[in-house]
Design a protein around this nucleic acid. Structure first.
Lengths: 241, 241
DNA sequence: TCAAAAGTGTTCTTATTACACCCATGG
DNA sequence: CCATGGGTGTAATAAGAACACTTTTGA
C-alpha cells in the first residue's frame, strides 16, 4: 500500500441539486455561502463525504440537515473532477439531483449555509465553484428522466390535478403541451388513480384529484411496461416561441 | 482548511469498461490481476487518478497504456463509492465505458496487468472488487446510448456493411432486428454514406460499404435532428426467444 | 353574468411492424 | 449448380398531432 499512499491526498464531496415545483415554476434549492471561498455567492448544498459513509447516504444526510426530510428521491448525475475545480485542494464531487415537494416542508439554515432559498430554474445567476455546470447537467438529466420514468410525482403533493401535472411537465421540458393529448396519454398508462375527491375553493370548475399508483407501476414494470412520454423535440403541443 | 483535512484520507480511481465488437459478439476487455487483492481474478482496467490529472484524462491514459490507442470514445457511467468496495482503504471509483475497434489494435500487457483479454459480454465470470456491478451498469448505459446517439460506429471499422451494423445492434440490444426495417430506418436518417466500394472475397453477393458521415450528423444535430432507434421493448423485429 | 380553468372526441398524418423473393458471388 | 448472405417494397396497424366547444364554480 506504500505506493498508493501518496494518492490519498484528495477529498470527495457530494453536491445535491434539489428540485422543487411551485407557482408553475421549476425551482432549485440554493444556499448562500457564509465563508470563503465564494463567500456570499449562491451554491449547491453539499458536503464532504465522511470516511465511513456511503455516497448515497451522504447525500441523504445533507438533505436531511437542510430540509428535515428523509427518504427523498435522489439520483446520481455525474462526478465532476477537474483538477482546479476547488480552490482549497483536489476535491472530486459527485453530483446528485433530488426531487422534493416544496409545500410540505420548511427550510433550516444549516451549519454550512447562511441562508437557503428556492430559485426559479431560469433565474439562477452564476454559482460558486463549477456549480453552474453541475446544475446544467442535472437539469438535462432531469429532462430526460422525467420522460422515461414516473418521477414527476415526487415533485407534486400526493393528491394533484391533471393540470398541475401538465404544468409540471411543461416547466421541466420547457415546452407547452396539448391538454387533450397530454391527458389521453397519461391516463392511458393507467398509473393515475382517481381518488374521487375534488379541488375545493377555486373560482372555477373544480378539478378531480388523482394520486400516482405506485404498486400498479411496479406490477406493470415487471410485465415489461415502459413509461414514456414523447420526445420534447417532437412535442405533444406547440413549442414555446 | 484544518476542519477538512481529516477527510483527505481517501483515494479515487477510474475503471474503464472497454467494449469491442468481433465475431458477431459484443466483447469487453478485461485484465487478469497480477497481485493481491484478487490476484488471478479478472478485473476492469483502471488506475488511481494522479493528483494533477483530470478524470477524463486519467481514463484516456489507462486506455492508452493498455491498447496504445488515443482519442478513444469514452463516456462517464457512474461513481461507485460503497465504503467497503475496496479492501485496502476507501477508494471511490468513477466508471467509464469506452468503445474501440478491436481489429485495429493489439493489446499490451501493461504494468498493472498479467494479461489482457477480450471476453464475450455474456461469458464474463464474477470479477474482482465490485467490477461485475460496474460492468452491468455500463452495459445498461451502452444499451440506452446506442439507441439515442450514433456511437455504434465507434465499434466498427471505418468502412462497414449494413449487415455488420445490424449485427452490432443485435449484439448490444440482445434482440433480433428485422433486416428490411433496420435498413430503411438507418438509411432514412441520411447519416450513412455509400462510398461506392464493395466487399471483396466473400462467397456470396458482395455488400456495399458505407461510412458514417460525422459532418452530416453535426449539421443535422444543430438543426434539431434526434438520432433514435425504437425501444428494445417494442422491437424492430422479433424478440429472441 | 362573467371570468377562469375543467373536461372531452375525432380526423389526419406519420411511424412502426410484418412479411418473401430474387440476386451476385465463390467454391 | 449450390450455398450463402445481399438487397428490395408494400400493406396493415398503431401512435402522435392538430384542433374547439361545453361545463362548473366563485366572485
Amino acid at each position: 500500500m506504500a505506493e498508493e499512499t501518496k494518492y490519498f491526498k484528495t477529498a470527495f464531496s457530494v453536491d445535491s441539486v434539489v428540485f422543487g415545483f411551485g407557482d408553475g415554476d421549476l425551482k432549485v434549492l440554493l444556499i448562500e455561502r457564509g465563508e470563503e471561498p465564494f463567500s456570499g455567492k449562491w451554491a449547491l448544498p453539499g458536503d464532504l463525504v465522511y470516511p465511513n459513509e456511503d455516497i448515497d447516504s451522504s447525500v441523504a444526510r445533507v438533505l436531511q440537515e437542510l430540509t428535515g426530510l428523509e427518504n427523498v428521491y435522489q439520483e446520481q448525475v455525474k462526478a465532476f473532477g477537474a483538477v482546479n475545480r476547488h480552490p482549497i485542494g483536489r476535491v472530486i464531487t459527485i453530483a446528485y439531483y433530488s426531487l422534493i415537494k416544496i409545500s410540505s416542508n420548511k427550510l433550516k439554515t444549516s451549519s454550512f449555509a447562511k441562508e437557503a432559498k428556492w430559485h426559479s430554474i431560469n433565474k439562477v445567476e452564476e454559482l460558486a465553484f463549477d456549480h453552474s455546470e453541475i446544475l446544467k447537467a442535472s437539469f438535462s438529466l432531469l429532462k430526460k428522466s422525467i420522460r422515461t420514468r414516473p418521477i414527476g410525482f415526487e415533485l407534486l403533493p400526493p393528491k394533484f390535478t391533471l393540470t398541475q401535472l401538465q404544468h409540471l411537465y411543461e416547466a421541466v421540458l420547457e415546452s407547452e403541451l396539448d391538454k387533450r393529448n397530454f391527458r389521453k396519454k397519461i391516463l392511458s398508462m393507467g398509473l393515475l388513480q382517481d381518488i374521487g375527491e375534488m379541488q375545493a375553493g377555486v373560482a372555477h370548475r373544480p378539478a378531480k384529484l388523482y394520486k400516482f399508483d405506485k404498486e400498479k407501476y411496479e406490477t406493470l414494470m415487471s410485465e415489461g411496461f415502459v413509461f414514456e412520454l414523447s420526445d420534447s423535440k417532437k412535442l405533444m403541443g406547440t413549442t414555446k416561441s
